[in-house]
Computed example of a mutant assay.
Amino acid sequence: MRTERTLTRLDRVFARLDREPERPVQLGMPRMSRHRYVLVAACLACYAAIVWAVITTSWLVRLDWQVMFFRPYQQWPEIHAWLDYYVVLGQRGPTAVMVAAWLGWRSWRQHTLRPLITLAIALLLLNVTVGAAKIGMGRLGPHYATTIGSNEMWLGGDIFPSGHTANAVVTWGILAYLAAGPRARRWLSALSAVMSLGVGLTTVYLGTHWLSDVLLGWVAGVLILLALPLFEPLGARAERWLLERRDMVWARLVRRFGKDHASVPVTSTSGGLSTLVRHPVTAGGDSGRHSGGPVLLPSGPHTARPERGPGAASAGRRRPPHPDAPGRSKPSSARPVA
């Protein structure tokens, strides 16, 4: 009776670590649907509303000052040390390295550069859009505020919108964007939302950002994730270009080193075993040496030197035999050449 072995959780983990034999067919590029266009328009409207509320010194600015005077880091000082480490999850350098390592393994496993190229495009959009908004509006942070109740705009700061918050939304949300299945996408979306929400509130707790900075950072990050399908054709062209450059470099290396110092595989079979021997052939080459293709030696034992008869053996000795030395016996079998 034949029974099938039940796979354990550890077996499934190691199966996931194995490289797939070929690129999966379900790796389709997301498209800009009507629903996504509506969300992009809503995010743009929300982005403009927050900026306008800060510029006009509305109720949102008054809320910023109330939260700043509340000083959360003084209200709950026991969690200050822990939140100093947690806010690192919103810094661009550490998060980009962690996410790039994961997506690099995904690229190797699925035979595609799409995850890494998508991450690069998202980070480039993040740096351009958020960086330009920071420099253009020049808002000062709570620790550098000059006038109580003012919006602190165009004073040479770089705090609006929050870069930590937008970076947390993009770098952790890209994992959900590139998820293979709907279940994984839901779980990763919830995880990225919780982490970006926590990073944004942590910056408010530490007093490094206004509350309106965090709101605009959330909207800016979500807007980049929603607009990523517009750049998928660009990523596909970049992947084709990189693969073509790789093939060209590889072909050039093969031509160069194959001409200067080629190697000719020689396969010999002896005793039922196959041995691959490579002989270097220079560019000039020996005219008597085989110049291409595998050289197959005949099967069977190969002697290292021709067998000689008794007369030839005695005549070919370089010194006379010792009278007490025993005579040589004829070898029973020849040595194979390795």
Rank of each mutant, 00 (worst) to 15 (best):
V222E: 11
G198E: 07
R240T: 09
D11Y: 07
R139K: 02
L113F: 04
A49E: 08
P323M: 07
R328V: 12
F160R: 02
V38W: 09
E78V: 14
A184T: 04
M1T: 10
F257P: 03
H80L: 12
T267P: 03
L230G: 12
H290I: 09
W105L: 15
W105T: 11
S314P: 04
G271L: 08
T165P: 00
L253I: 11
V51K: 01
V54T: 03
H279A: 12
V219H: 05
D286H: 13
H322N: 14
P265C: 00
A325M: 10
S287K: 09
L63P: 03
V254Q: 11
P233Q: 11
L124Q: 05
Y205A: 06
F69K: 11
R183M: 05
E239H: 06
L140I: 00
G235D: 07
P24G: 03
G173W: 02
M29F: 10
S107T: 06
A313L: 15
P294L: 05
R109W: 04
R23H: 04
D286G: 11
R237V: 08
I148D: 06
Y86L: 15
W76R: 09
S263G: 13
V170R: 01
L211K: 02
L116T: 02
A262V: 03
L296N: 10
L216Q: 08
R319M: 13
W82K: 15
A315S: 13
I117K: 00
A96Y: 11
F69A: 14
G157Y: 01
G173A: 05
W172Q: 02
V254W: 05
P182H: 04
S107A: 14
R9T: 09
G173H: 03
T171L: 14
M248A: 15
R5E: 13
A193H: 05
